[in-house]
Design a protein around this nucleic acid. Structure first.
Length: 305
RNA sequence: GGUGCCAUAGCUCAGAUGGUAGAGCAAAGGACUGAAAAUCCUUGUGUCCGCGGUUCGAUUCCUCGUGGCACCA
């Protein structure tokens, strides 16, 4: 055989909206290919949030080897850069005794980090971030934009100047590195020493929304409120800026009734799903298929050489 | 059975002494490289219940239907 080892390994990447059947599909594929599962979900990473983030159940966890599920304390900061680095390290180990690994999750940025890599940019320094937040509070977004115009006129031209998060991050990098943000953003795609096959779980919008609504009711039945109460003291943490918890924190604070909170969770989950689809739709590498068409999906995967 | 009121966007409703209509919510489209389940931008989607009549012109006024609500029997 002349097969080179560089592309004998493959990563099957399952993407799609929340509630569209990714988890079940991932387990079927994992069993079919005797592959471990790597989660690409920015919230299922955390402990103490199994219901609200729809983590795989105990039973599902037994059906396949899972990684990056419930492995961080909610206090731990995490980001797409760390995810890229840790996921690649893990893959190296997994590929040592597996030809196939299944990645599954809905965090578009994390998936991009894994498949295409991130530029070599620093994680935000908390001090600088705090000082920028204060400036935003005191002087407004226009002041931040003004500073960006000075420090990085090129990025100033292209950035969404009504989005505080974007402007703030760019300034953070400028201040931290003393160099313009745009100069450090190459947008270059990193090469990977494994093949990547992307599968999207396709589902009619109306069906997806029904499933989402039903799943939220299920979460409530399973005890999402108790889960949220346990996390309430930590509600300011980034890990808990998450659909499901945010709305129930509001209920616990008296901002709205329990019923209203549940409706808000449904609406915000629908909106989240919509944003995910906007992200994934523009990726031409994704092979879209109904998640229950396992045979069709396997046939597609096997046809990818 | 009688009388009155109502019928406009997916929902709740506003509106024009007659010139084919607009708010909120829901929704749709998009952006997005270390907070990404985050953050942000854009967008009104309509046999104005139906058939006639008056009128240059009716979603608006009139008749008759149909459906809903209220009251009286």
């Amino acid at each position: 055989m002349t097969t080179t080892t560089t592309n004998s390994k493959r990563l099957i990447v399952i993407v799609g909206a929340t509630g569209s059947g990714k988890t079940d599909l991932s387990i079927r594929l994992a069993r079919h290919y005797h592959a471990p599962i790597l989660s690409t979900d920015s919230r299922q990473l955390y402990k103490g949030m199994p219901i609200g983030t729809a983590q795989p159940t105990e039973e599902q966890l037994r059906e396949a080897e899972h990684h990056f599920i419930a492995c961080l304390d909610v206090e731990q900061e995490f980001n797409c850069g760390q995810f890229e680095q840790q996921a690649l390290e893990l893959l190296k180990r997994l590929f040592a005794d597996h030809d196939t690994v299944v990645a599954v999750g809905g965090s578009g940025l994390y998936i991009r980090a894994l498949c295409e890599g991130m530029d070599d940019l620093p994680t935000g320094d908390p001090e600088i971030r705090r000082s920028l937040s204060e400036k935003l509070q005191r002087e407004g977004l226009a002041a931040l934009c003004e500073e960006l115009k000075q420090r990085d006129p090129r990025y100033y031209e292209q950035v969404d100047r009504s989005n505080p998060a974007r402007v703030l991050r760019a300034l953070e990098v400028c201040r931290q590195t003393g160099r313009p943000y745009s100069e450090q953003r190459t947008g270059e795609r990193r090469s990977r020493d494994f093949r990547i096959i992307k599968i999207g779980t396709e589902m009619e919008r109306a069906t997806l929304y029904e499933r989402i609504n039903r799943r939220v009711d299920q979460m409530i039945d399973e005890g999402l409120e108790q889960e949220t109460r346990a996390l309430y003291p930590k509600k300011e943490l980034n890990a808990l800026q998450t659909v499901g918890y945010k709305e129930l924190f509001g209920y616990l604070d008296g901002a709205w009734s329990r019923e209203e909170a549940i409706e808000l969770i449904k609406r915000n989950t629908r909106r989240y799903a919509k944003r995910q689809l906007t992200w994934f739709r523009r990726d031409p590498e994704i092979f879209w298929a109904a998640p229950d068409k396992t045979d069709k999906i396997i046939a597609y995967i096997d046809s990818c050489l």
